[in-house]
């Protein structure tokens, strides 16, 4: 009772629908890696698993980066203002935080970040 055109149509729809799910639902891929840079040294890129603390030695002391549940933040830093610690958790690919006095920056990386840059 199905014609050939029916069958082709059905095949196309069945193939296209998963693609549509993929396209619309993975618009925001979770971040997978953390990029850390100290002063003028080359950046290191590390996976966001397992949960751990990373110590980074900068010009004025040691900053501690906390990695937990696919997120990252400055847990502590020797800077006076603690702006970096107050900037909180990075959750989305593309987000970055920096400790200017200690010249350390961290950024979440993902293959499909929702934003290419954040304005503030």
């Amino acid at each position: 009772m199905m014609t050939r055109a029916d069958r082709v149509l059905m095949a196309i729809v069945l193939c296209a629908l998963p693609l549509l799910y993929l396209h619309i639902w993975t618009d925001q891929e979770p971040a997978t890696m953390l990029r850390m840079q100290v002063a003028d040294m080359d950046a290191t890129v590390t996976p966001l698993t397992p949960d751990r603390h990373v110590q980074l030695a900068g010009p004025i002391g040691e900053s501690i980066i906390e990695i937990r549940a696919g997120q990252a933040r400055f847990l502590d830093s020797p800077c006076p203002g603690k702006v970096c610690v107050h900037s909180g958790w990075l959750r989305e690919a593309g987000q970055l935080a920096a400790c200017l006095p200690n010249r350390i920056s961290i950024q979440l990386l993902g293959s499909r970040p929702r934003f290419d840059a954040i304005n503030f």
């Binding site: 009772m1 199905m2 014609t3 050939r4 055109a5 029916d6 149509l9 059905m10 729809v13």
Partner: peptide, 18 residues
């Protein structure tokens, strides 16, 4: 307007629903 035997009820209905 599809030439040939074209769609049957299932094809029409599917297209209409989508």
């Amino acid at each position: 307007r599809l030439p040939g035997r074209g769609f049957g009820p299932v094809g029409f209905s599917l297209l209409a629903a989508l």
